[in-house]
Design a protein around this nucleic acid. Structure first.
Lengths: 355, 355
DNA sequence: CTGTTAGCGCTTTCAA
DNA sequence: TTGAAAGCGCTAACAG
């Protein structure tokens, strides 16, 4: 027996047509304010439509029109200022161009990644922005979507396809500059908190860190790099503060602890700061710390947090513009790539403030 | 001239049918793994489908089936742990029952509220969970949706309708307990930060604060209540930390400053803590502070934050269950209301820790 | 095992 | 100014 019951009946154009005594085409014209209808019929139709709680069936309409004026955004993790700012910017850009936005969350799971792509594609969405991390099954499915002619733009996802545009912050350079800053301050034992080997932004930041050490002939001490082999965020109930807290505790328990750390993002940094304080050490005198993102909170920590500011909204805006451009243009345009600059913001967690 | 171009042609069932030389019904059976098809034809169809990059048209399918297995969630503000936890819980519950989730953001605007309702309804979504603040135009539109038989559940929105279920945290009681806690500690000059008169959770928390003062015969000093007449979050680029920071600065500049404050949420409290520290005052000795929500960060502030924990995930889960129940049941069930308890979590921002 | 028919609710096109 | 017919792409129901 079918578990799902039949939907309560909605009134249709022809229901109204029958009641009023006209053709459904006439009703359609009234509803869409399109074409000539006598004032008299118009009024009658409007009245009956209201009485019967008429609501246009978008499925039928879109099926006929082959277009939905809606785009989709797939996010890995919604509890992250980076994702949310991205989403806000995408929505805003889409909205000003007359498009609606549907957001799907994958919770960093390949299965849900695919489910999101599928359900967006299934709803005849006009195009998709993907901001989740790369994974094998997901990439494969995504390729199928792209090849069935649905426009796609990726943000920070390692997915290459000749018709898929790519937007990202320059995580490599950002990681480099964060580490460079600590080196400039005289630090040599510099830790990295929150490494993941599952690709994405965090891996690039780690690489930037390694590059900076290399450039200054500082040898890499693997014990100073905390994180996991798998994606950290796959842990259920994960919180980046916790990762930062625990990672920092491990580093502090080392016989020769680091004098500075670079955390993969600001929440991780905040967790790490909490661990440093718990150990009764001072920031930045005993341990200096740099984060990544520049979330609004970063100026309100104590001390305030030195961090790499990445243009979150700009990434969303550019991705949305690229997507709409693809949707509205006839011929396929070649792949475009935009890597956006980050900026070092120096605050109290690395440099003692003057007063 | 029409700006929007025709979509690149997608291949259809009958395209495949023609190529293979069978009826489209046969192709449908293969695609949906449903009914008997000879192994030979199945293989041929699968091969051609893959070659032609076939993708099922969900619009047509759903139009026929009168069901989409998708629900919608409308959020006012995505950059808020409350909203995001809600969303995650809704997604999880929906997912385990075989439903997809589309999230829309309204940015606290009535216009976008309506746009979200409309676009969800237009896509033939099976039901909608609304977690935005009440507003006149939005409520009216929502009423229309409800009356056209689309199942709706609201979370914390003051919207009454005989078929619309309601879920909320007990913000009134939570506000009361937060204030009561401060009173129990001996405080009498207690401030409130982040008042808005635009309804919703924050107004209830303020009311709880007033009730607690009243019960203890502490007279209300309006200068101790900071906030705005309009919805605070309507300010573009708003950040609750900033509101907390600025609100606290105002309170500290008072001739007779409060010895304790209750902030409408944790981010606001964190901003306020930052202002207190900037004024070189100690927490909790000079100013004690209570937040609301218990976000993960709350244990990592210094001192850690006393707050009212509200069951964020539970609200999402219950709302989703209520909605699915409505979707899958034949007859209309009467309005149900669930007000969930909050819990006072005492930490260092109100009570000196022992060590 | 496979095909035919009909129709979901709407809009496009052409005719009246 | 209005209507009739056709069809978007798919699937339920029935017939072979």
């Amino acid at each position: 027996m079918d578990r799902k019951k039949i939907k309560k009946k909605q009134t249709t154009l022809s229901d109204i047509a029958t009641t009023v005594g006209v053709a459904s085409m006439t009703v359609s014209r009234v509803i869409n304010r399109h074409g000539y209808v006598s004032e008299e019929t118009r009024e009658k139709v409007m009245r009956v439509a209201k009485e019967m709680n008429y609501r246009r069936n978008g499925l039928a309409r879109n099926l006929k029109r082959q277009r939905t004026e809606t785009i989709g955004l797939v996010l890995g993790d919604i509890s992250n200022p980076y994702s949310t700012e991205l989403a806000r910017a995408v929505r805003e850009t889409a909205s000003t161009r007359g498009y609606n936005l549907f957001i799907c969350i994958s919770e960093h799971s390949a299965k849900e990644d695919i489910a999101a792509f599928e359900s967006l594609a299934n709803h005849g969405i006009d195009g998709i922005i993907v901001a989740t991390r790369s994974n094998k099954a997901g990439d494969e499915y995504l390729r199928g979507i792209v090849e069935s002619n649905i426009p796609v733009v990726v943000i920070g996802r390692d997915f290459r396809h000749e018709t898929v545009d790519y937007v990202s912050a320059d995580n490599l350079r950002g990681g480099f500059e964060a580490t460079q800053h600590l080196i400039d301050l005289g630090h040599e034992r510099i830790g990295f908190i929150g490494a993941t080997l599952s690709g994405g932004a965090s891996l690039k930041r780690l690489q930037g860190y390694l590059n900076a050490l290399g450039e200054h002939n500082i040898s890499v001490d693997e014990r100073l790099i905390t994180g996991r082999k798998e994606a950290i965020t796959d842990v259920p109930g994960y919180s980046t503060e916790k990762i930062g807290f625990e990672g920092m505790k491990r580093l502090l328990s080392l016989p020769n602890r680091p004098t500075a750390v670079f955390a993969r993002n600001d929440f991780t940094a905040i967790g790490a700061m909490s661990a440093i304080k718990e150990a009764s050490l001072r920031i930045p005198e005993d341990v200096a710390i740099v984060g990544f993102d520049d979330i609004p909170l970063a100026i309100h920590t104590s001390p305030s947090l030195t961090t790499i500011r990445q243009p979150m909204r700009l990434q969303g805006q550019i991705a949305a513009e690229m997507l709409l451009q693809k949707i509205e243009s006839e011929e396929k345009s070649p792949r475009e790539e935009r890597i956006l600059n980050c900026e070092l913001i120096i605050r109290g967690s690395t440099v003692l403030s003057k007063h």
